[in-house]
């Protein structure tokens, strides 16, 4: 464990608390893509199946349980509790275009052709693009509540912080994980446009609005 990874994980935790806080205080999931949230459940379940056969640490164990449980809870909030506040007509990204290629790529580019290993690889590829329905929705509406942008910024910071973590691990532990690194770079790259608007507008106290 190094500082970058810890800060990345804490940022990930923070993003989830911000999202739940947003939904509960505004009593609405307006502006949140159900498809992206459903993809995250898929990602966590596929990746953390190793809870059943691999012990890493208490930290790792509780974080995995938390990410699975909280993502399922968010789906529940969106699907049942605050269902009327979700507008499927603006959440129209075709998730097949993300899941399909992630399945195919994980069957081709993996470390070992084993079921759980392919599931892990699939989860890495799917996570890289899981934010796209959310960003697509943002693009469509052209604006977002400030709290929603804080959620996205914390989520983007999480993967961004994993990059210095990999560099650090390369020098200190002499290990590289090319699949995680390539997918992580893609994932972070997807946030660049968002980060630009976030830093130049939201952090200056303005509303998140995209140019028409």
């Amino acid at each position: 464990m190094n500082l970058f990874r810890l800060l990345g994980d804490l940022s990930h935790l923070a993003s989830i608390f911000i999202l739940i806080h947003k939904i509960q205080t505004t009593r609405s999931c307006r502006g949140i893509s159900f498809q992206t949230q459903a993809l995250y459940v898929t990602v966590f379940v596929a990746r953390y199946i190793d809870l059943f056969f691999r012990w890493i640490s208490l930290y790792n164990f509780f974080m995995k349980i938390f990410f699975i449980a909280s993502s399922v809870y968010i789906l529940y909030l969106m699907k049942y509790r605050y269902r009327p506040t979700h507008d499927p007509s603006i959440d129209t990204f075709k998730v097949e275009y993300l899941v399909g290629p992630a399945v195919v790529l994980s069957l081709i580019f993996n470390y070992k052709f084993e079921f759980t290993e392919i599931l892990w690889t699939f989860s890495i590829y799917l996570e890289a693009v899981a934010i796209l329905p959310q960003l697509f929705m943002l693009q469509r509406t052209g604006e977002a509540e400030t709290i929603t942008t804080h959620y996205l910024a914390a989520l983007g910071a999480y993967r961004a912080l994993y990059i210095p973590n990999w560099i650090y691990r390369y020098f200190t532990e002499d290990v590289v994980d090319p699949i995680a690194i390539v997918a992580g770079l893609v994932q972070t790259g997807l946030y660049l446009d968002f980060f630009y608007v976030y830093f130049t507008k939201v952090l200056q106290g303005q509303k998140f609005e995209l140019p028409a």
Binding site: R5, D9, H12, R47, D50, R54, I56, N60, M63, K64, F67, Y111, W120, Y162, N165, Y170, D174, V175, V176, D177, P178, A180
Partner: peptide, 10 residues
């Protein structure tokens, strides 16, 4: 440099 074998990251 070796490829990481266990997946110890989240």
């Amino acid at each position: 440099t070796e490829r990481r074998k266990g997946h110890d990251e989240l």
